[in-house]
Design a protein around this nucleic acid. Structure first.
Ligand SMILES: [Zn+2]
Ligand SMILES: [Zn+2]
Ligand SMILES: [Zn+2]
Ligand SMILES: [Zn+2]
Lengths: 128, 128
DNA sequence: AATAAACCCTAAAGTAACTACAGGGTCAAG
DNA sequence: CTTGACCCTGTAGTTACTTTAGGGTTTATT
């Protein structure tokens, strides 16, 4: 399977795949005689795993940790849970930030009376 | 007022201030004989404006647009509103993404029975 | 006066997670 | 035999800063 097919199959870009290889998230594939990358089913599955992790917001580092955990024989669910819990905490912080921003912007927008800029309380508020 | 005082006053780092100058968000200050930057009250106010905008999530580009609008004589509130409205739209998209992620992670975490990793449905789910 | 701590300077590189070029091979079809 | 769709490498650009390297200057202490 060539890189273009893999990209189509996984609905990501060819560049992303090469990038994941470069940063070591994806193992280096075999090369055909012409130098083209050739992928296996396993690598496809692994890429899908990575993309699924990214979709729920895990960072490359967190994905690497998950991958490490996965290969450890003695690993416990605790480690996976710890990672997800910490991630949830970060995510909540970000959610709170965004909600706060939203509130501020709405408050600002309400100050505006849609006249000329001289009167615009949005700018006045921001500048005060 | 030297850069360190300004930073303390505005609760941001000295490096951030120099950075804003470099990218043109902050006008170049006078220099003392020794080459040290010297700031005025006006520049302090302007920095606070920038920081306030950043706190509600406006990008540097959006701040520049606001600054442009502010200096236009003929400007109307409409332009300010347009900018904030568009920003709200983006913000909502981001909020929705994060909420979606949160749901996914919670769903995943609930699959885990806290045993040994062999049974861990978190990994199983992500890998399937 | 000498030294050390705290402050200032510039320029360049690092961060996250990609995306986009630039400049070039390979391969099938018309 | 040339066009178009792929593939390759390597480098630079993106956002908003932070960090580092390698200095000068000012201020306080000894
Ligand atoms: Zn996380
Ligand atoms: Zn207005
Ligand atoms: Zn915006
Ligand atoms: Zn588990």
């Amino acid at each position: 399977m060539r890189i273009g097919e893999l990209a189509a199959e996984c609905d990501c870009s060819v560049e992303t795949i090469r990038y994941y290889e470069k940063v070591g998230l994806l193992s280096k594939p075999e090369r055909a005689e012409n130098g083209y990358r050739t992928y296996t089913e396993n690598q496809l599955k692994w890429l899908q795993f990575i993309l699924r992790c990214r979709r729920i917001g895990l960072t490359q580092d967190e994905i690497r940790q998950l991958a490490d955990i996965e290969t450890k024989v003695s690993a416990k669910c605790d480690e996976v849970n710890e990672l997800l819990t910490q991630h949830l905490v970060n995510l909540h912080r970000k959610l709170d930030d965004l909600k706060q921003m939203e509130k501020s912007i709405l408050r600002l927008k309400n100050k505006c009376e849609k006249g000329t800029l001289g009167d615009c309380l949005v700018i006045v508020e921001l500048m005060k």
